[in-house]
Amino acid sequence: MSKRNEIDVKNFKPAIVYTIYIAAAPEKVWEALTQAEFSRKYFSGQAVEVDLRVGGAFVMRTPDGALHISGEVIECEPLKKLTVTFNVNWPALLEKLGPTLVTYEIEPAGDVVKLTMLQSHDREISDDILSGGRTGWPAILSSLKTLLETGQALTIQMQPPERMLAALKELGIGTP
């Protein structure tokens, strides 16, 4: 397994681990995770762009084209595992909180697949700040499941939790 020198995944501990079972082929789940035409439907309108090789760029853009998440591919095993750095582009966030890793693991489980999402950090992150991921990921994963199983994504209205915004502000991190 190839890894980037700058980021050693062994130094990261998962803070959030979510699992969902989806009645779809691994290929479809992989496509949905890596292609903008899918992500726009289940990921709050955001478009994913990823160069699927270790060291390749990973970004997510808001519907108006602005760069929201930037990162790079750390591990890539097509149809099985994708690990990327997943840094929200808010001023000073990366310096204050360190890098965020997001890993998707796809495992066949009978007729369905088990999709596991891990959000990992190389330091302790407060519950207030983690509340963003804890609120967002279940909605995103449920919407992804519904999209793949029915062809229609769920529209879930999402706002960043107040407690997260307050905690970020306290750390001097700019928020929109």
């Binding site: 998962p14 979510y18 279940p138």
Partner: peptide
């Protein structure tokens, strides 16, 4: 699927998985 386990080094860690409750 309310708890997910994963190996972290030598340890087996248990994580709460709220996705089914969300559904």
């Amino acid at each position: 699927n309310l708890v997910t386990t994963l190996r972290h080094g030598r340890e087996k860690l248990h994580y709460i998985n709220p996705v089914p409750i969300h559904q």
